[in-house]
Design a protein around this nucleic acid. Structure first.
Length: 333
DNA sequence: GGCCCTCTTTAGGGCCTT
């Protein structure tokens, strides 16, 4: 199986982190392939949006985990807080006092010197213990990061285990004109029980932090990330007065796809890649978690074909600050 | 918007993301 062979391809490159890294990939992709259809174990959604029971009393509801893989598990959920946000978070992260998450996070991140991380990576010091790879996807009201908004976000931590996925609809507070693309309508998201981006970001930060390894970095993977997903995410964070943590790095699978596929005259869209790799279609295309599950498999195939190690992948990763997303007026002089 | 390709580079069209 490709899952196994990929481990071998990476083992050729990674030395110090070999044993743990093998488990890292094997566990992650095993869990994905064995339960990709229904192992979403952490959702923050409008209750009616997904047709779940629970009515309107609860602002958001959870779905139980169903993954088979082992992983970090937080079982404590007995604290009956009236704050539903805390109630959700207690499933995945330790409950903390209500603090300004962003300020605290930025302060803490300053203690983790970027150059130290880079140096550790360069020296290949236990990469597995440093890197959490998260495949993600967003659905939006359109292509303009200035005028459009995120309406759905999904993540999958490839290390697998409980709470390895996260997905939610997002209230854009504007009309969704492109529902024909993803099937997400205004009525589904413009609701008081669907979190707005400013509500979601603190939850997202805590969720990612719960998946992050001690003093490690998180590598987010998306298709066309450099041009679409990351600038969009960055814009939404800015709009809500948040900053993307400095230990969040991003990788775009589009250039990898061009290297592998386009040389053979094929297209490099997500669906074209699905056909190229003969991956069975599961879920609706252009829904965030379905695309995340698909990209998780494609990412595995691409890195296998290109014989890429984690070190190689990190070398082509980028920070949001490296992107020049400022609006530039074309110089007509 | 950024990247890639070509009938190119003093440019333009297509792809990719929703």
């Amino acid at each position: 199986m490709r899952t196994v062979t990929m481990c071998f391809s990476i083992l050729q490159f990674s030395r110090s982190g070999v044993p743990r890294f093998a488990g890292f990939w094997r566990g992650g992709f095993h869990s994905l392939s064995s339960s990709s259809r229904n192992n979403s174990n952490f959702r923050v959604v409008g209750s009616k949006t997904y047709g779940l029971e629970g009515g309107y009393r609860r602002r958001w509801i959870r779905r139980p985990a169903s993954t088979k893989a082992e992983g970090r598990s937080k079982t404590a959920d007995s604290n009956k807080s009236s704050n539903i946000r805390n109630e959700i978070l207690e499933e995945t992260v330790s409950a903390t006092a209500a603090v300004n998450v962003n300020v605290a996070r930025v302060t803490e991140l300053r203690k983790i010197e970027y150059c130290d991380i880079q140096q550790n990576i360069a020296e290949n010091k236990g990469l597995v213990s440093l890197v959490t790879i998260v495949v993600f996807d967003i659905e939006t009201t359109g292509f303009s990061r200035e005028n459009d908004r995120i309406i759905e976000i999904a993540l999958r931590d490839l290390s697998g285990g409980e709470n390895s996925t996260f997905q939610t609809l997002v209230n854009p507070q504007k009309f969704v004109a492109n529902h024909h693309v993803h099937g997400i309508t205004s009525r589904m998201v413009n609701r008081p029980d669907v979190p707005r981006m400013e509500d979601l970001i603190p939850i997202l930060l805590k969720y990612v932090r719960s998946r992050q390894k001690p003093e490690g970095i998180v590598l987010f993977v998306a298709h066309n990330a450099r041009v679409f997903d990351v600038p969009f995410l960055k814009e939404e964070f800015n709009r809500c007065n948040y900053v993307i943590p400095t230990d969040w790095h991003f990788m775009d699978t589009l250039p990898l796809s061009r290297q592998v596929v386009k040389a053979k005259g094929q297209k490099v869209s997500l669906q074209a890649l699905r056909e190229y790799y003969k991956i069975e279609s599961v879920g609706s295309a252009h829904r965030a978690m379905a695309d995340v599950n698909l990209l998780s498999i494609i990412f595995q195939r691409l890195t296998f074909d290109l014989k890429m190690s984690v070190s190689n992948i990190l070398e082509i990763s980028f920070a949001p600050t490296e992107l020049n997303t400022n609006k530039k007026k074309k110089d007509s002089s």
